[in-house]
Design a protein around this nucleic acid. Structure first.
Lengths: 240, 240
DNA sequence: CGCTAGCTTGACAGCCATCAATTGGTGTGG
DNA sequence: CCACACCAATTGATGGCTGTCAAGCTAGCG
């Protein structure tokens, strides 16, 4: 009766059992996808709304010169651009980073839910606003943080997001990102990401290997990153 | 009976006269602000929704080290973060860049409009989605474009946005941004922005001086920028 | 046991930051 | 009308962070 999606939205508003059941029921159309599968490609006409139930995905854009910039990470429970359906064409692509199970909610059903349940509407809004807030925070990172700070900041963000959906504890969590993916997300080169990661490991601040993150010195990491989690607008705060 | 705000939203949905009148009527609470005035400061509790009727504003965040990163430009007709009211605290600041007149719509009135008029709801959504799309595009610029490309891309974006609200023509428009402001928006230093601007001028591609932009070779500028205006999701397309 | 994707390391180069100083334009006060 | 302050724009010199190129290395996997 509950899944990652329901739990995630519950964090954004006080949903009653009926609403939780409605959400869970909307997730009946499931797909198992391998890593590297596309949910949406740039230029597609939008129709269903996708929700990640298990696994990770990312949104990205390709530049004329072939370069790739990742613009968002999607974790279990996350929408893939709710309400993007209103626009005429998708302006970026979304692909899985791991094996993933994805629910596709028909647009009509989403709209019915919004009509029927104000509390769900609010939870959806909240979710979208948090996404927007994360985007803004990425702009700040890309514009004004150096490579070490940028890496540290992203690790803080992802750790907190994982913890908030119950997938992290003890400053440790799964982090299935190759250095190439990290580079494309951070606006760096894989080579440089590697160097930064090694330096953080050498300093015994954090370690990223075999697809999992271990934060050895949370306070130090947050300080390096200049991390202030407010932008995640979570009800539960705190990092250390 | 019409203002920049109404015209802007009309571009996002087919509003009838009643709806236009409702919007115009909502903008009765006006304020004249000088350049450099704050509409919202980080940490504020959100209440009214602000709309820029004349002049420019920008959203920004300050980093621990005192650096500033501008995360959005707001032009006449733009919302200042519609629906941010749902969150508990604002996570960034908004200030005017020029003398500006700003309308503040009480939150209750906004919600009443949404309840009463589905077409307005859709126009609001659209507007917010376009903002989000612009944020994503900024991430791409910051991450993967070099300084000249970044400057060129921003100029393309702002020119198109100005044109779409009827404030530009003949590849010329007002652009009241100091090189320091540009630097804070682009993640560069003022010194480097200056050099880039001079090189673009020397190449006779565009010229930015005395607060106005002149695009001498639109095609070349778009090519340098790798500009594809789709992300602005405008009904009227085309740059050249 | 070989293959392949991802990780690691070194050398070198270049873009952009930093520091410093000058110019120009505008508003203010004498 | 001029002196002055102040902000924005400009230019040069220098350095460092990060990109680029190239080559091994490791580990998982068929």
């Amino acid at each position: 009766m509950s899944n990652a999606f329901v739990r995630h939205l519950s964090g954004y508003g006080h949903l009653d059992d009926t609403e939780k059941a409605l959400l869970a029921g909307a997730c009946r159309n499931l797909r198992e996808l391998p890593a590297g599968a596309h949910l949406i490609r740039e230029g597609d006409e939008p129709d269903p709304v996708f929700v990640i139930l298990e696994g990770w995905a990312c949104g990205y854009k390709i530049l004329p010169d072939g370069g790739r910039q990742i613009i968002s990470f999607m974790l279990p429970g996350d929408f893939c651009d709710i309400h993007i359906a209103i626009l005429q064409a998708i302006d970026h692509s979304i692909m899985t980073l791991t094996k993933a199970t994805v629910a596709s909610l028909p647009r009509a059903e989403m709209e019915a839910l919004i009509q029927a349940r104000p509390m769900l509407t609010q939870a959806f809004w909240w979710s979208q606003l948090v996404d927007q807030s994360i985007s803004r925070s990425w702009i700040v990172s890309m514009g004004r943080r150096k490579s070490v700070e940028r890496v540290a900041h992203l690790m803080c963000e992802l750790y907190i997001r994982m913890r908030n959906i119950g997938l992290a504890s003890d400053h440790e969590c799964r982090m299935p990102l190759t250095q190439l993916v990290l580079a494309d997300a951070l606006g760096l080169t894989p080579v440089h990401v590697n160097r930064v990661l090694r330096s953080l490991k050498a300093a015994k601040v954090m370690e990223l290997s075999h697809g999992s993150l271990q934060i050895l010195e949370p306070e130090k990491l947050a300080q390096i990153a200049g991390f202030d989690g407010n932008y995640l607008h979570e009800r539960v705060h705190g990092f250390v």
